[in-house]
Amino acid sequence: MSQSGQSSESVIEIRNLGKVYRDFWGRPKVKAVNALSLDVRKGEVFGLLGPNGSGKTTTLKLLLGLLFPSEGEIKILGKSAADVAKNERIGYLPEESYLYRFLNAYETLDFYGRLFDMPASVRKERSEKLLDQVKLAPQARHRQLKEYSKGMTRRIGVAQALINDPDLVMLDEPTSGLDPLGNRDMKDLILDLKKQGKTVLMCSHLLADVQDVCDRIAILYGGELKVMGRVDELLKAQDETQILSSKLTPEAIKEVEAVLKKHGANVLKVDQPTANLEDLFLKTVQESRDRPGHRTVKEGAKS
């Protein structure tokens, strides 16, 4: 634990949490979260994974006091979820950016800054800094949010969540709607937050996102906790060894296989390693930007 800089102090404690959505007449409709218990520790990046409808967003809303739990208990930053005072130190990025569509970027940040009782000078300074940090195009900053593209809305959403320099940041699918560059920026931002000693709780069902940034993850399915643990440990396949070398001829491969057989190992797959799609895309975009008009991807690579 000490290697990633987190302590054992819990920022969020969830005990036996349950949430049943009810209809207008109070009849139960959906059991969205069921007997969930988990801790998020100070200074770690915690990922909440799961397929669509597995209760990730519901859990976040319960933590924030937007929904009331049907059963169980929540302690967040040492306070109860219903206590508004806890919000002073929390930043929240909703699933979709539910911001005021008739405000522009500056007005939006100014508005949320006021809600933290921040004086005007501080608001101005922080807005400027955050807008740069989330890389919102300067020419877009004076336009109303209703004219924003999805990615731009996402960026201003993130800026809004960080306006109070929170200790605990909750991000609900932070990378949705972002282009691969934005995706990378977002991951950098999360890692940066971690470096500053903040705790991050993020939801996602994109494993690739999570893999890169999270220290620990929990996988929900149907509102129940299925897996929880450190990412590197979870992803380490226990009974396989991968050997990577420069390109070999078929004869050489046969020889290597023979050596392996001698040691009682089965060859499962012989393959050239490929960069994952995201890497390829990034490389292409990076190179096209550096050398406009140049095609980096060879024909053969398409197949």
């Binding site: 937007l66 002073e88 929240y92 539910y98 911001l99 005021y100």
Partner: peptide, 12 residues
Amino acid sequence: VRSLHTVVTKPA
């Protein structure tokens, strides 16, 4: 439109 969510999760 849930914009209130972003307000009540601030100290308002």
